[in-house]
């Protein structure tokens, strides 16, 4: 796996060079138009400011990783991309998260529609207490997708690299699967509605290294079709899988003794891990802090 990851990174570096040397190539620029443009984003829970003034872009069909110490607002940031923060009553968002140029937080944007296009995989595998089949079919059903449901389920499970393991027991409970299988089921379930973006909130933190490896392989495979944003505590994971990397950290507000997350550095992953421009990033990625 290390080999393959290495190859991917160097290939992506090649891509970058292509980009920078052929800037005039309009088609290439178009293909790399950012999916998300985050502009001066701050999120509050009540009067507590969880993150402040984040500006970054998320490119199409890339894996963007958010890393940083606990409490730095990575997950809060991630949840801004599909308006999951709406579910927390006290949460309030300032600034702009533009998805293909549409600010997700402008009035009139339907969060349900946003979440159909921007899927999410959670930290703890959370399959529904239903059959494997019904888990995958849930999204397409609520989205009233047309087409043969059996086909959608099979396609999604294949994309989730789970088909071969479960094809003979689609009707049995998803809770009977192992943790790693459950997480791949959750990914397959998210893919079933054909989203453009998949948000992953520490998807491997509850899994063993082998299951983690399979999820990482899966991410590599599906990134040709999807844009992925992943929050991870695992720096090796960020280095292995991501193309772009954002490092967040916390600053202590002296007055209220609370911590606010802020973006320190956002760069190509290789750059970030080999030659970070900020000292705090360097301290973190080399394990001296956090």
């Amino acid at each position: 796996m290390a080999n393959r990851t290495g190859a991917t990174v160097s290939m992506d570096v090649g891509d970058l060079r292509d980009d920078s040397t052929t800037r005039s190539d309009a088609g290439n620029e178009d293909a790399r138009a950012p999916v998300f443009q985050v502009d001066d984003l701050s999120v509050y829970y009540g009067s507590f400011r969880a993150i402040r003034n984040v500006t970054l872009q998320v490119e199409q069909q890339q894996i963007t990783a958010f890393i940083g110490p606990s409490g730095c607002g990575k997950t809060t940031m991630l949840r801004c991309f599909n308006r999951m923060n709406d579910l927390i009553e006290t949460a309030r968002v300032e600034g702009c998260v533009a998805y293909h140029g549409v600010n997700l937080y402008e009035p009139g944007v339907n969060p349900v529609e946003v979440r159909r296009r921007i899927g999410m995989v959670f930290q703890k595998p959370n399959p529904f207490p239903k059959s494997i089949y019904d888990n995958v079919a849930y999204g397409p059903r609520v989205a009233r997708m047309k087409g043969d449901m059996d086909e959608i389920v099979e396609r999604s499970l294949r994309r989730g690299a789970l088909w071969d393991e479960v094809k003979d027991r689609l009707k049995s409970s998803a809770l009977g699967l192992s943790g790693g299988q459950q997480q791949r089921l959750c990914i397959a379930r998210a893919l079933a509605v054909d989203p453009e973006v998949i948000l992953m909130d520490e998807p491997c933190s509850a899994l063993d290294p082998i299951a983690t490896g399979r999820i990482e392989d899966l991410m590599e495979e599906i990134k040709t079709e999807y844009t992925i944003i992943i929050v991870t505590h695992n720096m090796q994971q960020a280095a292995r899988v991501s193309d772009m990397c954002a490092f967040f950290t916390t600053e202590v507000n002296e007055k209220s003794d609370t911590r606010t997350g802020l973006l320190i550095e956002f760069d190509r992953t290789e750059q970030m891990f080999s030659n970070p421009s900020d000292e705090r990033t360097e301290n973190y990625v080399t394990g001296r802090f956090g």
Partner: peptide
């Protein structure tokens, strides 16, 4: 009812009523 179920439902683009009907009430 575990919150993960609600989050999973919302994350898949279900409305509050769909989450209530298909996840919360059955559980």
């Amino acid at each position: 009812v575990p919150d993960e179920l609600r989050l999973a439902g919302f994350g898949l683009g279900a409305t509050r009523w769909e989450v209530s009907r298909t996840q919360v009430l059955p559980y």
